[in-house]
């Protein structure tokens, strides 16, 4: 099957602009990049369905002349999901703005802290793996220790 030059060129340009925007530090531009990439991808998927034809409505056109319905269904849900993703990104922009008064991508502090920990040779919760201490652990060194509850136990058996 073949494709039209116009759509290919359009997809190429949209992807270029989308990636260009995505690589910006401003979160607004990142959001715009995601939207552009979403449109570009939807076009790519639609054009992958083969030659365009009539609307996929049974009875209004012969089946052989219809456009591919599967890619349309895929793109339709993708469009709505892009809305959800855009809303999510927007709320991230809102959070970033209200906390830092900027809409920039900053360096991930979590990643930084990993490197800091490595530099200091720290471990995640090292003590969790220390079982040497439990050799001294008695059954009765928790809340059941108190004599009262033991008396209670013995009394209940009598």
């Amino acid at each position: 099957m073949s494709s039209s030059f116009l759509l290919l060129a359009l997809i190429a340009i949209l992807y270029t602009c989308g990636v260009y925007l995505l690589l910006d530090r401003s979160l607004t531009r990142v959001l715009l990049g995601v939207l552009v990439l979403g449109n570009a991808t939807n076009l790519l998927v639609i054009s992958a369905g083969g030659p365009f034809g009539a609307a996929a409505l049974v009875g209004r056109a012969p089946e052989s002349a219809m456009s591919d319905a599967l890619v349309q269904a895929l793109v339709l849900t993708a469009i709505v999901i892009t809305l959800g993703v855009a809303a999510f990104l927007l709320s991230i922009i809102h959070r970033t703005w209200s906390l830092d008064r900027e809409d920039d991508l900053t360096v991930d502090t979590e990643d930084r802290s990993v490197r800091r920990r490595l530099a200091r040779d720290e471990q995640i919760d090292e003590d969790e793996f220390d079982t040497t201490g439990c050799e001294q652990t008695s059954d009765t060194d928790d809340e059941h220790t108190d004599r009262a509850s033991r008396a209670d136990a013995a009394g209940a058996q009598a």
């Binding site: 997809i11 340009i13 270029t16 602009c17 989308g18 990636v19 690589l23």
Partner: peptide
């Protein structure tokens, strides 16, 4: 960086 990506995806 972006331009090759665009061309590549279309191709």
């Amino acid at each position: 960086i972006a331009a090759p990506i665009g061309v590549l995806v279309a191709l």
